[in-house]
Design a protein around this nucleic acid. Structure first.
Lengths: 203, 203
DNA sequence: CCTACCGATCGGTAGG
DNA sequence: CCTACCGATCGGTAGG
């Protein structure tokens, strides 16, 4: 790997760390430069504008999410088995934060929700893709008879996502590991799978 | 009401509006002053520091939340009847935003989660009180036989809160009114009340 | 990658 | 409540 690429990568990682605490807008080039022991121009030179830096930090956060939540489950059979694996990886990922401020995605969703711009649009695109993945596996599980026939895949996908996002701010009141257990159990409940409804898989 | 008090109130309302979109940190005195047609010193003079302004905006958001979500349900019998009324008011409140950027509380929770300070502490105190209210009604409903005996009140309260917070950012992908319906149904599911489990109240 | 600098905006104060 | 102003920091550029 070239030096410039390695430097750029370390900038992006540190940027995601800071943004997970202070948000993508609260991420300032000066603070980022100081955290890296670099000059401001040395930092921003890799991106041109702050918006490009934000987009790079978002891309990095999305990759980490895919590696942590989707990758471990991807090879499992479509439908309920994969859904259950995703739920477990998702709550574990939300509880043991990859970034200092916890899950970047949840942070960014709430920050960018009501604000226009390219970063908002990229995040919305990624969320839409993720939602489709969930909906497809839920529908597959319904077709296989693993979930009740009256399941509305979109409704369940919404609930799963809300519950996962709820783990992040739970640190304000609770230990995250406790919240992760609660979240996993709530996910099983909203899925409504007969095998998990009684909590037999939620320890 | 005195002029100064009325001015202060209008500042606080506008501050909460802006903070619901840009966050409490993104709320700048200059932008706020311009939105009000006042000078910066005229704005900040009512509070002294930005932190006091943030605390005032938070207090206002908490009052609106109590008026919208708790007040309509408060007189109902403790336990499941009041819980169901709270869930309905909560999802309606989350869907038809009182503030421009949606529910202030959800926004603030995610923004302040990983940041120290007095504003964080005040919000955590308010959330703790709210959580206790929910837990008490859930436990009451269990005692009355309206919820399953194996219900863990803290776990269910966590899930209700996560689902409510999920309505806010759903605007990024969905219509909020649709998300509110989904959220209400998910709340009924995690409550697990026999009368609502089949969705008979969530139609 | 750096230093040096730009105009704009930040929170906040002095004085009236 | 205002104008006028403070030092600090913002994103970004010029030049090397």
């Amino acid at each position: 790997m070239e030096d410039a690429t390695r430097t750029r990568d370390s900038i992006v990682r540190t940027a995601a760390d800071i943004a997970s605490e202070r948000g993508l807008e609260g991420l300032s080039i000066g603070v980022l430069a100081e955290a890296l022991g670099m000059s401001k121009s040395g930092v921003i030179g890799h991106f041109g504008t702050k918006e490009e830096l934000q987009l790079a930090a978002l891309q990095h956060a999305l990759e980490v999410f895919r590696d942590s939540v989707w990758a471990p489950a991807a090879e499992l059979p479509a439908g309920l088995p994969r859904l259950l694996a995703v739920c477990e990886a998702w709550t574990r990922y939300a509880a043991e934060p990859t970034f200092r401020g916890g899950c970047c995605i949840a942070q960014f969703v709430f920050e960018l929700d009501a604000r226009p711009g390219r970063v908002h649009d990229e995040l919305a695109r990624a969320l839409r893709r993720w939602r489709l993945t969930l909906v497809a596996d839920i529908a597959h599980a319904v077709g296989a008879g693993d979930l009740p026939a009256e399941t509305e895949p979109e409704q369940v996908a919404f609930a799963l996502e809300a519950i996962a996002e709820g783990v992040n701010p739970a640190r304000m009141l609770h230990e995250n590991s406790q919240a992760a257990q609660w979240a996993l159990r709530a996910m099983h409940t909203v899925l409504g799978a007969p095998s998990t409804r009684a909590g037999s898989l939620s320890g």
